[in-house]
Amino acid sequence: MTTAAITAPSKPGAPSKTRARRQAVLWGWLFLVPLVVLFTAFSLWPIVASWAYAFFDWDGVGPPEVFVGLDNFREALNSSSFWNAFWNSFLFSLGALFIELPAALCLAMLLNNVLLRGRNIYRLAIFLPVVSTTAVIGLVIAVLLAPVGGVVNEVLLGIGLVDRPVNFLGDPNVALPTLVVVDIWKGFGITLIYWLAALQTVPKDLYEAAKLDGAGARQQLANITIPVIMPIAVVVLLLTFQRSLNTFDLVQAVTGGGPIFSTDVLPTYIYRYAFDASIAAPRYGFACAVGVIFGVFTLIITLLQGPLLAGRLKRTAA
């Protein structure tokens, strides 16, 4: 790195405050340059471009020529299958936020305890589903949950919880909750690792001190752990929310969005219009419009549903 040669000569003892401040700002901006360049070129520009495609009837090849104005947006907003996929996607995110996030935090606190032997192996075990190939997992899940000869159904029948096999993936009313649970299982390790990293930032001494003050486990959690990990927790929350909204591989591998679209989520919906090999005329323009609507709605709902989050962001940003 060439920048390493430059050192800021601020003389100890006689610092010119405004000069040091100006220098800090310059350095800060310099540090931001790689991010701004890469992110603008490879992330923002494609997004803006896809906003433009959304106004065209375009099959993805050559320059888009047929301008259709807001037709794509109108079509998506008036389509019941769009809204079906939309709400299904949100069910996935509800599962992630209200089940996966707290459960992973609890497990992370357990696996963060240095007194627990073999915690690295446990962490690895919890993490393994994340890196297992989704297509193969889809096959295993289908075999495990099969109404005919599936282990899960045999156990449920055996202990008398149900009196006839549950059609976990074939019944349109059951398939979506089933997939939400499987998705939580598959992604749980990611959240766990983020929580573990967050917990590492809590200094051990704090707990010792709190214990001496007679604070119980719950008080330690409320008074030490939560406040200290809060800045990272906000990021983990955002990340989990965003990841759960983009569940694609698993749904595609296990049900393909079926039966009769009961597990269709927006990424599979978009895929059907833009990339599915069986479609003769891909509609990239329409798919882009759906993506734009999805992004905007998600953002609005995030900001509406999380006044806490918004406040927190504001405080961090201020």
Partner: peptide, 17 residues
């Protein structure tokens, strides 16, 4: 901008990239 960009799906924007 970073937070907003997080919520715009990227999957189908391969062509401009």
């Amino acid at each position: 901008v970073l937070v907003v960009a997080m919520f715009i799906p990227h999957g189908y924007t391969i062509i401009p990239v």
